[in-house]
Amino acid sequence: MFVLSLIKDTVAIQPAYFAVPPEQAIISELNKKYANRVLHDVGLCICVFDIAQAGEGKVRYGDGCLWYKVVFREVVFRPFTSEVILAKVKSSDEEGIRLSVGFFDDIYIPIMYLPTPSAFDPNERAHFWFSAFEAPESNPDYVPTQHELLDTPTEQRMYIDNGEILRVRVEADEFFDDEPGPPKAGEGGIMQPKAERKRAPYNIICSIAEQGLGPLPWWNPQEEDEDAMEEG
């Protein structure tokens, strides 16, 4: 789930930091710039791994900074497609489940990637998998409707509650670059902040519609309830 990315950049070291060994100063400056930020099509930066190359610090006309050209390796969070990771359920709604790994929480499971048949229980605010369901002989592909599922006995439902740890497979990831455009002069020169919904810059789409995926206890024979091992 973590990768090393090779990045080239130029950093300015303020005169106040000249007393610090250059390597330390550069790393600290790079961490300030990159840590906990999403780089488009790269992933979420965690911290500098090491510096691969650094030029002489140069002084430019106009400021007193030392400018270093550096090539460095950054630890980046970017699970690859089809990777299996562990994540905690953050919240659930009609559209799916939102997961978190602590430092990153734009991870989603849309309902199409939930095990079938499953439904959202509005009372519990949680999705459940009805693994005991058996399709009628005449129509093996029959998928029960939400209403039918909500009429099932509660004790046979397998809920995915908030805070549970899920084993999920990464299906896709998407990056959005919603930079605000050039500032537009509003009426009287005052800028109107736009009230549009902000998209997260980096989303991961995951699936649990597969054997072995989902809450850890489902597949752990020590804590299993018998239903868990049956085919869903």
Binding site: V3, L4, S5, K8, D41, V42, C47, F49, V75, R78
Partner: peptide, 23 residues
């Protein structure tokens, strides 16, 4: 800024954890 290679190597969770602990 220029990304030379977005994925130059893979890191295991354990490696990342030790790196962060050291930091």
């Amino acid at each position: 800024m220029e990304v030379v290679s977005a994925r130059s190597a893979l890191l295991s969770n354990y490696e990342v954890l030790s790196l962060l602990r050291e930091l």
